[in-house]
Structures are given as C-alpha cells and as structure tokens.
Design a protein around this nucleic acid. Structure first.
Lengths: 103, 103
DNA sequence: TTTACTATTCGACATATATCGAATTATATG
DNA sequence: CATATAATTCGATATATGTCGAATAGTAAA
C-alpha cells in the first residue's frame, strides 16, 4: 500500500525534525492544529508563515522552505485559504512514527 | 534535573536518526539489545562495529563515527568488553522521545 | 486595474555532514 | 615482547543544508 514506509522514509522524517527551527515550527503547528483537525490561521490562532518567522528570527523565505520540507516528508499537510495557509499534522504519520519507535 | 531536554536536544536526537545508515545501526542495536538490558556482542548476537560495517557496506571508521554520534545524543550507551563493544539502548531517552511526540 | 499583503521560488554562500583510507590506540594471546 | 584483532581518531573531500535577500506569484480589496 502507499502508506508503507521503509528505513529511508523514516530517516527523511527524522531529518525534517532535526533542525531546531523546523522542529519549533512543527510543534507550533501541532499545538494550534490538533492531529486530524484542520485549523485555519485566523486572528486568534495565528501561525502563518510571516509570524512564525518573526518568532524564530528568520525570514519568510526560510520559513517557507522549512514548511515545504515538513510537507514533503508527510508530517504536515497544507492548503491555501485566501492569502494564508491552513495546515495540520497528519495523524497517520504521527501514529506510524510512534509505532516505529515501539520495540 | 539532568534529564530534562529542550527543543535543541530533541533536534539533535532526531538528527542522529536522520541518516539511513545510522538509523539502521540504531535499529540493529535495538533489536539485539532490548532497552534496559545490556547485551554483549558475542557469537550468537554479533553486532560489533566491523560486522555492522559489512552489512551496510561502509568502512569501520564510518560505523565508529555513527556510533559515537548515537552515543553523543544519548540514544545508546556503550562499554568496552575486551576487544569488542557492548551497547544498549537507553530506555529513558526512548520514553522521552515517545512522550515528546505525544500531543 | 492598481495597490497591498502574503507566500514561494531562485541564486548565492557559508557551514555542516557522510564517507573514505591511513595512522593510532586498545586489548588479547602466542 | 611480537602479533593479531578490533575500534577510534585524523585529515581530506565531495555533497548536503540552512539561511538570506531579491524576484516572482497568488489573493484580496480599494
């Protein structure tokens, strides 16, 4: 099935989490978008690219690059909503990750 | 307490698992040395540096480098037993890792 | 259609990393 | 002590990565 992952897939996932800024972004996204739920980046729950960058002290292009990487390995999913980007943590991959570490 | 970890610590841990060869080494070690139990690298359960290298197709020095990295971030612990190296997965850090991904 | 705001892409660069082979160190045994 | 075996360290190198700033693209609203 298309969901099965091998060693290299997991290595890529870990790599996506191996940078402190990227890991912070991931946790921030996870905190505002519970796995399985799609949260908009609205006023109360703002976490769009620009703001994430300000918090971290990196420019927008870098944040965009990191988000792209998180999405590439499947950790998060994103969708444009107007000018901003909605995102959520993929619940399946989180489960797969925990399963992977269960030995 | 000395066990508490911050974002950067976890990023380092993920980085240690982000290389396919290193991840393979870690899983191989985990499979022969259950967390919390210290297993020697004896004949039946051989996983010392040289053999790990042969399996992966990398030279000893590279394996040694990877093991050093896994140890540095605390994922595994090692101890010399004669000419060979005993190792085991640190159960605490595994638990911390799973806890970290529980949100 | 302008203008404003947001996100992405692109090119550049400095730094980090994976890997190898040679040299060295550690341990055991003849 | 000399030899053999195992692991580490060291120096070199090619590749990957994180970051920035400028340019571009997408969306909304005046």
């Amino acid at each position: 099935m298309s969901n099965s992952k091998n060693i290299e897939d997991f290595a890529e996932i870990f790599k996506a989490l191996s940078n402190a800024n990227r890991l912070t972004i991931f946790l921030r996204l996870a905190s505002c978008c519970r796995p399985g739920t799609v949260s908009l980046f609205d006023e109360e729950n703002s976490a769009y690219v620009g703001e994430l960058g300000e918090e971290l002290g990196v420019v927008k292009s870098t944040v965009s690059h990191h988000i792209k990487e998180l999405r590439r390995v499947g950790l998060i999913r994103t969708e444009r909503r107007g000018q901003k980007i909605a995102c959520w943590v993929d619940p399946d991959i989180l489960a797969a990750l925990k399963e992977f570490l269960s030995f």
